[in-house]
């Protein structure tokens, strides 16, 4: 397949990119990893007339911890996250997800910020960002703003990034020692979109009760969604099979998937619950909780 004709504008600075976006308006799209955009263009489902390539911009591919958060620049690749030892050590939810995004070839190019901006209903990073309570830094002509992930993900393929704006960075709060998480995904084969996905992150208090809970599911509606009722059930509770089951049931309850070749609605809703349950179990195991009852 071949894309429709388009102009290619390499940007060498953020300002240059923003100027190009401002000039070309809705016809322009940012090219970061291109792992979703290019296939969509090849099928002519996306037909931007201008591609603003931000890859030539120096210094955008950073991954660093600063002020209690992990900062991922707009150029940071999935692969870099997957292989960073400090992420494997402390950011369990993020590490899990980085290892299962699409396939290894896609992960070489694909970016986390690009995936958040693409906001595919079955994308991985929206689920992770919700469960981890991430924020996205957005810059435009009017200046820079920091958008909580809940406000960032608006609808399928729609985010808070406005015309002439660019997402510069994703910020994930650094987990403390009593925090862990898990990302669970069902896919038909490596590289497929998720049939169902769940991300969870828990912080335990010193007395063993749950001090903070993030639960989100993917491929379960127009965008990744937070399972608010599950978080409520978990918060303050002492982990038990019954509590986990109750939280998982809430995920099934709000899961609103489409039927497609990956499965029917009943199956996918069931899987949302199964994956949240498995994610919670895996998280507690990582937190070295004993056998649950």
């Amino acid at each position: 397949m071949f894309p429709a004709a388009f102009d290619y504008l390499p940007a060498h600075s953020v300002d240059e990119a923003l100027a190009a976006l401002l000039k070309h308006g809705a016809d322009a799209r940012i090219l970061a990893g291109g792992q979703s955009l290019i296939p969509a263009m090849r099928f002519r489902l996306a037909r931007p007339t201008v591609l603003v390539d931000i890859n030539p911009i120096a210094g955008l591919a950073y991954l660093r911890e600063e002020n209690g958060a992990l900062l991922m620049g707009a150029g940071a690749r999935d692969f870099a996250v997957e292989v960073a030892p400090f992420i494997k050590e402390r950011y369990h939810l993020i590490f899990d997800a980085a290892a299962v995004v699409a396939d290894p070839i896609v992960r070489q190019s694909g970016t986390i910020v690009g995936s958040l901006c693409h906001n595919d209903p079955a994308g991985d990073w929206g689920v992770v960002a919700l469960a981890a309570r991430a924020e996205v830094v957005v810059r435009g002509n009017a200046g820079t703003r920091v958008v909580p992930i809940d406000d960032f993900l608006i609808d399928s393929f729609t985010t808070a990034v406005g015309e002439g704006e660019m997402a510069l960075e994703a910020r994930f709060p650094t987990p403390n020692e009593r925090t862990s998480g898990s990302y669970q995904k069902i896919e038909r084969k490596v590289g497929d979109f998720a049939t169902a996905a769940a991300g969870v992150q828990l912080t335990l208090s010193a007395d063993g009760t749950i001090a903070a809970a993030g639960v989100a599911i993917g491929a379960a509606g127009p965008t990744a969604k937070r399972v608010v009722e599950a978080e409520k059930i978990l918060l303050g509770a002492r982990p038990s099979i019954a509590v986990l089951r109750a939280a998982a049931a809430e995920a099934k309850e709000i899961s609103d998937p489409i039927a497609d070749t990956r499965g029917d609605i009943e199956f996918k809703r069931e899987m949302a619950g199964v994956l949240v349950y498995r994610g919670l179990l895996a998280t507690l195991k990582r937190l070295q909780q004993g056998e649950l009852h």
Binding site: T195, G263, D264, E266, F267, K268
Partner: peptide
Amino acid sequence: LTRAKVWH
């Protein structure tokens, strides 16, 4: 034999 079919 997809997951969905086997599950059903």
